[in-house]
């Protein structure tokens, strides 16, 4: 297996249809942003999958974890995604709202356990709506 990625071109915007884009810079710092792709409206009581595109400029392997502060009425299924070191991977997590409502949830992405992002760049807030 060889998945040699271009070494430069890091740190730019990610071209993706996924609502979230995670980049891991060469120093293994995690940056997450909302892309232009819409999240859509959730159906109450049903799981909704949110795609995440991961661009890994650091060859980091191992877990990419997603953490969130609890929000009433919101259930999160945040599986640990296994980074293979490949330059681009697709990941996903699931959200479910119990009832018609709108919530604002803050998500933090972490690779390598101890390392966070630069400043608050590893954190993103999402508005989730169920009707």
């Amino acid at each position: 297996m060889t998945h040699q990625a271009p070494a430069i071109g890091c740190c730019g915007p990610v071209d993706t249809d996924a609502p979230l884009a995670v980049t891991i810079n060469p120093e293994a710092r995690v940056n997450v942003t909302r892309s232009g792709a819409p999240i859509g409206t959730l159906k109450p009581g049903e799981w909704h999958t949110l795609a995440v595109t991961v661009v890994n400029d650091a060859f980091v392997t191992g877990p990419l974890a997603v953490e969130a502060e609890p929000v009433s009425g919101l259930q999160l299924d945040l599986p640990v995604h296994e980074l293979t070191g490949e330059h681009r991977q697709e990941a996903a997590f699931r959200v479910r709202l119990d009832a018609p409502t709108v919530v604002d949830v803050t998500l933090t992405f972490r690779a390598l356990g101890a390392l966070g992002g630069l400043a608050n760049h590893s954190t993103v807030n999402l508005l989730l709506s169920a009707r």
Binding site: A28, A58, V60, T61, G62, A114, L115
Partner: peptide
């Protein structure tokens, strides 16, 4: 550089004999 990144093995024991995953940089 930054020698410890990806070399943690879940213990503070030093020395320890757990082979790390070498996941990082």
């Amino acid at each position: 550089a930054h020698c410890g990144v990806g070399l943690g093995v879940g213990t503070e024991e030093l020395p320890n004999y757990i082979v790390p995953s070498f996941q990082g940089i």
